[in-house]
Nucleic acid binder design. Structure first.
Lengths: 137, 137
DNA sequence: CTTAGTGCAAACTGTTTGCAGAGGG
DNA sequence: CCCTCTGCAAACAGTTTGCACTAAG
């Protein structure tokens, strides 16, 4: 089963890459629709799945209800905003953590690990400051 | 708004604690129904939400589609099985990772982090071995 | 008594799937 | 031409919610 570079697939990939963000399927759907108004959400889902299986993009499972997709397939970690759920990359030294950091090693056959920071993103910090100012005045 | 210790709440809490596992809402529903056949799944969801808001249990967001709930509210990390999605505790030295481990520090106001190992759990390893043996013979 | 909690069904969100037709290679 | 991909609608899984009734304190 070989991949075809259809118009919709190309636009989806382009939009994800140029966004430089970690978008959900429906965020991407919104962007892609501007170029291709008749595209269906199912097509976006199917392509994101296909592209991530092919290793062209990465599917990331982060706290929150929706899956997000990453244009960057290098191993790296993420930080997400607890308020708006935006996700950004962080570069945490790989190798800092290893199986040997585990006391009480589980009898699992380890395949990997993920580190996920949480916090408040700059835009939300700004929003909070404004809201607070309003309250006071 | 104060908490009442209802019968259903007590059984849910008991079952989660005595399981020593990280159960999903419907796994717990199945267990609780044995004692209280007319309980509704919505009640289980509501109570898990309430109990975790009250800090009596912990809600954990791990890879996979369903949320799981943890009887242990101490800060600790998890490992999950990529095959059966079972979740277990791991003890990773807290303090190993800190904001200062981040090169290129994001401008986030950091609130925490989670580490999630993945692997194949002992029962699944066993299952795999059996399946393989069958194939060969 | 008061008001938090319950059971039920219906709504909702995010995602997947069956199908008939379109279009890439 | 073949077979992957598409749009559409319907199905699905997990979770939440409105409502009238129940029961904890």
């Amino acid at each position: 089963m070989q991949l075809r570079m259809t118009n919709q697939r190309e636009i989806i990939l382009n939009e994800l890459r140029k966004s430089r963000q970690h978008l959900t399927a429906d965020e991407l759907y919104g962007r892609v629709k501007k170029f291709m108004p008749r595209i269906s959400l199912a097509t976006v889902y199917r392509n994101l799945e296909t592209l991530s299986e092919a290793g062209i993009i990465a599917k990331i499972e982060i706290s929150g209800r929706q899956k997000r997709f990453d244009y960057d397939i290098e191993a790296h970690d993420h930080i997400f905003c607890v308020q708006c759920h935006r996700v950004d990359n962080i570069s945490l030294e790989r190798g800092l953590i290893s199986v040997s950091s585990l006391s009480l090693p589980p009898k699992y056959q380890i395949t990997g690990y993920r580190v996920e920071f949480s916090g408040i993103c700059p835009p939300c910090q700004k929003k909070n400051r404004k809201a607070k100012d309003k309250k006071i005045s």
